[in-house]
Design a protein around this nucleic acid. Structure first.
Lengths: 331, 331
DNA sequence: TTGAAAGCGCTAACAT
DNA sequence: ATGTTAGCGCTTTCAA
């Protein structure tokens, strides 16, 4: 392995000079040239670990998400990587699988390795005092971290859900049901709240409890919830699905039983991956995944650079200016 | 920052003992307890940089992919992270954006930081001699790296394309066109080859050149290529799309002009994300993204652990046992 | 502008 | 079983 000693020797200078050349400090042109030539000839690449050990900082950001195969989280991660790279940071990725213990392990492991952590908390109980006390700032993303004094970046789930639900009312539907994620999952709870607000605003009354089904945030969840709703003595004429997987599950069920999506409404909070063609009648609203990532990265970088104000909580608007670019398939 | 010195002092032992406790070497129960207690009290977390510098290895694998928002590559990355984590490695992620220069920068930056690199080459010219000469093994994934002596893991693109095309012949279509990625992109070239083989096998003749359109691997590419094909004096009655984005684009165009997918066939090589509902008539075949990732990770770990045989080239079968679980929407 | 030298936190001989 | 100690490769005072 080539080190700065090899380069220094070959260039006829000291290691300090080599270091300076690679760090932009002032060095006479002649020596700088010699160093660069020697480095190139030797195929020198700085040892990041030595550098980080010496400097006491790591230029790496950990991103801990439940599932890299979920398009919402990859969009978010993309936002982080863009900002990170622009600032000279690398991104280390971890899958928590929605498992609090695995998340805790990943956080602990990250502490010794990274300059900061961006994590989508897997549980309300998640505690980030360890990294914070060790000087590794944490930004919680997509979900709150009520147990910890950390910065938080979340989407405006209530407003997003409310807007989405209102779309259905706008289309003339009058009995809009709700399918959301598990109780106690923050985003799921807030989206139910938004759905209720829309009812109150548009119909002047809160929706009956039976119209809201809580299931895992999966396609199967959306499917079974839709089936359950259809069995109600007074079934809904439209469904607000709190995320894209639930929406796809709902559509799957409806299509299977031969329902026409222009007569039975479905709205998805959050875009579908690959902007796949969307059946006429399915409404898709925007969830600012990438923006969440960029804001979280920006806030984390501020902390890494020494900002030490009180914990901040930033709510990214769910702009409902227009639907996902989509094309409708004749039902 | 708490170091092993602090822990050693508080526990009344030497730093070596503290180190041993944290590395599983034999230490008397009493001292081990004392060390653990002291570490807990002090909130000690090992400094990864010091550890890696000392050990000369990094327990980090870099994964360089064109786009983290492409479901094929996230599935692949998932495969890598699973194997990596099981072996105690972390994954560092980089987006190359299909940009050879950016890829080269990321590779260079990774050298000082990681134990090995898994990269989807952005170009035929990609040269990985620098990391390899620096002792950082590289595994090329999804695409060949003809300029470098590195391990390669690719899907059986020819067989996959051939099988997919044959599905269309099985369904009774007789003039199957091909939409593939840019010329000189290896996977795109090979998939065209598979399509040709299917023609030869089933019709005893090679397809006319005009039936094959090469476009970027995007939905818009699939859309415009389909339009172009429809203008032929002898248009096709079915399309083999070389990846999922092209397939979706093709479907979009067909739906837009009112074509019925049961009468005009489309097959996608590679599954659609989120197993979104699939219109009746669209055939989806499997591309082993995750398997690619796991194999690449396994091969890389072998290299990291010292295996030094000649470069290997592994072709992962594209098993076409069954379609993606899908449900059809009445057209 | 440049060089000499200390030391970041840790592990692994080598001693004991 | 445990302690002592020498670096890993780099950056950065401090002196010249």
């Amino acid at each position: 392995m080539t080190t700065i000693y090899d380069v220094a020797e070959r260039a006829g200078v000291s290691t300090a000079t080599v270091s300076r050349v690679f760090n932009g400090t002032k060095v006479s042109t002649a020596k700088a040239e010699a160093v660069r030539a020697a480095a190139a000839a030797l195929g020198f690449v700085p040892n990041g670990n030595a550098r980080r050990l010496r400097m006491g900082s790591s230029q790496i950001i950990a991103v801990l998400i439940p599932d890299i195969e979920n398009s919402f989280f990859t969009a978010l991660t993309r936002g982080v990587t863009d900002i990170a790279r622009a600032a000279g940071y690398s991104v280390m990725l971890g899958n928590t699988d929605e498992n609090p213990q695995l998340e805790a392990e990943l956080v602990a492991a990250a502490i010794g390795d990274v300059a900061g952590i961006i994590v989508a908390p897997t549980s309300d109980e998640a505690d980030y005092s360890l990294p914070v006390s060790r000087g590794v700032p944490v930004v919680a993303i997509d979900r709150d971290a009520p147990q910890s004094q950390v910065d938080v970046v979340v989407a405006d789930n209530v407003a997003g859900a409310e807007d989405a639900t209102e779309r259905l009312f706008d289309l003339g539907f009058v009995r809009v049901a709700c399918i959301s994620g598990p109780t106690h999952v923050m985003t799921a709870d807030l989206r139910v709240e938004g759905w209720k607000k829309a009812w109150l605003k548009r119909l002047g009354t809160l929706p009956p409890d039976e119209l809201c089904i809580r299931v895992p945030y999966t396609m199967d969840g959306g499917d079974s919830a839709t089936e359950e709703l259809s069995k109600l003595s007074q079934p809904p004429d439209a469904i607000f699905a709190a995320n894209n997987r639930l929406a796809v599950g709902a559509v799957r069920h409806l299509v299977t039983v031969g329902k026409d999506l222009t007569e039975f409404g479905v709205v998805s909070l959050g875009e579908l991956p690959l902007t796949l063609y969307i059946p006429r009648g399915l409404v898709v609203t925007h969830l600012p995944a990438r923006e969440l990532g960029t804001r979280a990265a920006e806030m984390l970088l501020e902390r890494i650079r020494g900002y030490s104000g009180p914990p901040r909580r930033e709510v990214v608007a769910t702009v409902v200016t227009h639907d996902q670019h989509a094309f409708a398939m004749t039902p």
